[in-house]
Nucleic acid binder design. Sequence first.
DNA 1: TCCATATTCAACCCCATGGTTGAATATCAG
DNA 2: CTGATATTCAACCATGGGGTTGAATATGGA
Lengths: 116, 116
Amino acid sequence: MGLNMEMSPAPALDAALYAIADPTRRRIVERLMRGPARVTDLAAPFSMSLNGVSKHLKVLEGAGLLKRTCRGREHVLALRPEPIRRIQAWSSRFERFWTDRLDALAQQLENEKETE
Amino acid sequence: MGLNMEMSPAPALDAALYAIADPTRRRIVERLMRGPARVTDLAAPFSMSLNGVSKHLKVLEGAGLLKRTCRGREHVLALRPEPIRRIQAWSSRFERFWTDRLDALAQQLENEKETE
DNA sequence: TCCATATTCAACCCCATGGTTGAATATCAG
DNA sequence: CTGATATTCAACCATGGGGTTGAATATGGA
């Protein structure tokens, strides 16, 4: 399983963020919060072609954001937690930062303002 | 200042995620965690041209991820909390979901496995 | 004033990517 | 077997965006 804790390259985080940056894909992910769904179901709310959605799903799947389960002719997509957890972990690193440096930063900005 | 709480379109979240999805820009943001810096300083660790970094900074600034303060001829960039907070908030929405549906999902996946 | 430093602007290039359409594949139902 | 449903594959197109280079702007220092 290899729980790896690297920080600099982080290809998984990269893929997750990239996948999720697209509005369409994000809408798909959000919709998938309400439970698994088939490709056609997922494509329904969009004006784009089914193939378009299919490609988006492939990207999401490639980033590990969802797992595909073939049940007969229909593919059922379900959300996978890890990638989003990674994103949350990454953004959480800043939270500490804000609280720590908030006052220092504020002071700094005040200084800048003087010189402006 | 208009603190708006909409969820579907979320152009700000969109811009933030887009900006941060690029590895270079993410590295810049991470570097900026350690305090404000000038354009040249930020560009130093990268092999790319200064202009390239300048463009990335513009994107980050446009997404509200950093604030630029001109001090003489040099521009000082500092991190801004809101966009990353938005990202964190977004990814946090899923946390509840995991814990809630985790068992149900596991069961569901087991079911799929049977049929496979 | 003159030159170096710090940065952006403008134009350009190239490739990745979101999107399309049309055909292929596979499964289900008569 | 035949046809309808569910989905992908393959080829293609057009735009955007990451990157470059070269010139412009502005500030600082001698």
